[in-house]
Write a protein that binds this DNA or RNA. Structure first.
Length: 577
DNA sequence: GCCGTTTTCGGCCCGACTGTTTTCAGTCG
């Protein structure tokens, strides 16, 4: 299931955690964390690598390469096994309790013998904490609260939940007297598909007023920490929201800092160090004199570090720093580049709006072209028939004559367990665009799922594989396929992969998008709209595309219609009739 | 343990807040 790289990354991460619990030096812990990230983000599969090959990976040196090579050979890592033998697995679980880090977790384990959140909870209730130095009454209270939160498993929420909430809070704070600027940062600004907490940044010379307004927001149910510079709250759905207030002149440095990701920031601070500078949320400073160099805009901060401005979706330390230094950052696709949507529904099947309403909404968005792609007959509950599809086409052609948007007649086919789709080639040839998606049989064995998707791609009439992994964030895992084989087939046959913009799908996911792009695959960023309001979800799909390093050239629905049409002909025109 | 426009040795990201401390360690982001 998991790639070798992910498996090794998890092992190194665990080793780093156990080192921290045993009180190892900070820098040693960080080295294993860095190596874990580097291997996790490394594009090639390392399954067959030996120590020499492993050392080519950044942050993997002699020692780690040796450990990983042994792990790949034997399935175990001696040093890790040693630590596992010393520290019960539950102690690592203790560090997942908020306010309890490795040091204090180990202290509790040694003095009380606790080895799980449950046994800690029992020990606290028994009053055992009173005898442990460094733990007062407040600690017990906070730990119990933390254990309760852990139990609720405050899950990460998807972008479609976090973004509107963040936008509401920003709008409210902007109205507070003295607030100069306010915006969201963090993983939300990086457009991660799921969000653990929301980071809001504001500038004001009167931070107290801003903090008071913040904790009084109707969405707030609990204040976690409160200060003049930083306040954290929890909302009714258990989501943590942090507000940071900095002086107006520090906006750029603060935005850079709070957008993260943490690993990206560590790199930018290291680079600052090399330039004898010091970077914090308050600005870029001369390391010797502490004099401010720049802080007003992110562009200035990056420029002074010798870097171009790096778009937030790339800031993960997965190669963007190296690309920036080499002047090879991708020119990312934006929502403005998009000329049309290739996957949308109407009330002919499971959509809520009519063909006319959807076409009008597409025109309003300024699209040049727009495909209606209702379900084919194989999704039986949608009651589609060939007659219905053809009569929809007639209406669409008629509407097209007066519509400012060029209307395309499409279909969303169902990919059966063996890769077959609803209609034969002669029927499919009547459509302008064919999307084909998996809607059932999600648990087939990997090789069968791979064959299923490859066959769909090899169908000369299938233009786009819709929501390729069929995942539903937080509800259904992605189907298991040999994705490299699927990507190869798509690149070879001129079949695009969809980046479905529905916020609980965001499918293909960004990391797979990036891997597919390396194989030369093209993409369609589609809304899969079932209602007028869904067309605007496209922004989330663009976020995923950006996180996958896509340029406009990689995305077929940014192309002019004639180029798109040529792509959609696929090899149909090359195959003799 | 890794790495090199400061280096093959000596550095390793920075600041806010909390709780328990009498000046700071631990945790978090």
């Amino acid at each position: 299931m998991a790639r070798t790289n992910d498996d090794v990354a998890a092992v190194l991460e665990e080793y780093a955690d156990l080192l921290a619990i045993t009180g190892a030096e900070d820098f040693k812990i960080r080295v294993y964390q860095k190596a874990s990230r580097s291997i996790g983000a490394y594009p090639a599969d390392i399954a067959d690598y030996d120590a020499t090959a492993l050392k080519q990976i950044p942050n993997v040196g002699e020692s780690i390469a040796g450990k990983v090579a042994a792990y790949l050979r034997t399935g175990s890592m001696a040093k890790l096994e040693e630590l596992r033998a010393r520290i019960p697995a539950g102690v690592r679980a203790l560090t997942r309790i908020p306010t309890l880090g490795p040091k204090r977790a180990m202290a509790l384990h040694q003095s009380l013998g606790v080895d799980s959140p449950e046994s800690l909870e029992a020990a606290i209730h028994a009053g055992a904490l009173d005898d442990v130095p460094g733990f007062g009454p407040k600690s017990g209270e906070n730990l119990l609260h933390g254990i309760a939160l852990l139990r609720q498993a405050a899950e990460r929420v998807h972008l479609g939940v976090a973004m509107p909430l963040a936008e509401d809070i920003v709008a409210a704070l902007q109205k507070v007297h003295g607030c100069r600027r306010c915006g969201y940062a963090g993983s939300l600004r990086r457009m991660k598909d799921t969000i653990g907490d929301i980071d809001i940044l504001a500038t004001s010379n009167r931070p107290k007023a801003l903090m008071s307004a913040f904790v009084a927001l109707p969405q707030v149910t609990e204040v976690i920490v409160r200060g003049d510079k930083k306040t954290s709250v929890r909302t009714e759905q258990g989501l943590q929201v942090d507000l940071r207030v900095v002086p107006p002149a520090a906006w750029g440095a603060a935005m850079q800092y709070f957008t993260g990701a943490k690993a990206h920031n560590i790199r930018t601070r290291e680079i600052a160090g090399h330039h004898k500078l010091k970077l914090s949320e308050y600005g870029l400073f001369d390391a010797g004199t502490d004099e401010l160099v720049v802080s007003k805009t992110e562009e200035e901060v990056y420029r002074r570090l010798g870097l171009p401005w790096i778009p937030p979706p790339l800031r993960e330390d997965t190669g963007e720093i190296e690309a920036a230094l080499a002047g090879r950052l991708p020119d990312l696709v934006t929502e403005n580049d998009v000329r049309g949507d290739l996957h949308t529904h109407t009330d002919l099947t499971d959509g809520l709006a009519s063909l006319e309403e959807m076409a009008a909404a597409a025109a309003e968005r300024g699209y040049a072209y727009y495909a209606v792609s209702d379900h084919g007959p194989d999704l039986f509950m949608q009651r589609m028939t060939l007659d219905k599809a053809r009569s929809q086409r007639e209406r669409l052609r008629e509407l097209d004559e007066t519509c400012p948007v060029r209307l395309l007649h499409g279909v969303e086919l169902n990919i059966g367990p063996d890769g077959d789709v609803d209609w034969p080639a002669d029927v499919l040839a009547e459509f302008d665009v064919c999307v084909a998606s998996v809607h059932s049989h999600f648990d087939l064995p990997r090789d069968r799922t791979t064959r299923r998707l490859v066959r769909a791609a090899e169908n000369p009439c299938v233009n786009v594989i819709g929501h390729p992994s069929a995942r539903l964030i937080g509800r259904r895992p992605p189907i298991d396929a040999d994705w490299e084989a699927v990507f190869e087939a798509c690149a070879r046959t001129g079949t695009a992969l969809e980046v479905n913009a529905f916020p609980d799908r965001l499918d293909l996911a960004a990391d797979l998008v990036r891997r597919a792009r390396r194989q030369g695959v093209k993409f369609a960023v589609d809304s899969d709209a079932h209602a007028v309001g869904h067309l605007a979800n496209l922004r989330y799909g663009i976020g995923a595309a950006q996180r996958g390093w896509l340029t406009a050239d990689d995305v077929i629905n940014t192309w002019p219609l004639d180029r798109l049409t040529a792509f959609l002909r696929k090899e149909r025109t090359l195959t003799p009739a």
